[in-house]
């Protein structure tokens, strides 16, 4: 059966090129996911009525975070991927962005900078 696969070269059968059809363990019900996403969008829009800046930030970024996790986990099938993928797409990216923020913050927001006219 493997030999019929046009992507498999003789002698190199151990190389996985094309996913077998039963690659995924299952599919989430995408309809529930999209409904949840839209509900979160509506919640984040409620921020117009929120005056407290902390609550606003929490609400807006909290919903964005939950939305992104829903998209990554379900639409992008992250929950079926091996650890390696998690490391490169999540931990590494997060580490780098946090490092960037951490390294630049004292230079940008803890110093006095003037916008002198020319």
């Amino acid at each position: 059966m493997e030999a019929k696969n046009p992507y498999v070269k003789p002698g190199l059968e151990h190389e996985v090129v094309v996913p077998p059809a039963d690659d995924y363990h299952g599919h989430p019900n995408y309809l529930y996911v999209i409904i949840a996403l839209i509900a979160l969008l509506v919640i984040s829009l409620l921020s117009d009525f929120v005056t407290s800046i902390i609550l606003l930030g929490l609400l807006v970024f909290g919903t964005a975070l939950v939305k992104s996790i829903l998209v990554i986990r379900n639409f992008m099938h992250w929950k079926y991927e091996p650890l390696f993928i998690w490391i490169i797409t999540f931990f590494a990216v997060l580490f780098i962005l946090l490092a960037l923020f951490w390294g630049m913050y004292p230079d940008f927001d803890l110093v006095k900078v003037e916008l002198a006219p020319k």
Binding site: V16, V18, D23, P82, I85, I88, A92, V93, L97, L100
Partner: peptide
């Protein structure tokens, strides 16, 4: 790791790179 076929692996790597560009 071979469970991940090469096309998808490459896409994940590309996505990691793109996320860093946008993220920064």
């Amino acid at each position: 790791l071979r469970r991940v076929p090469q096309g998808r692996l490459a896409l994940w790597l590309l996505i990691a790179g793109e996320l860093i560009i946008f993220g920064s």
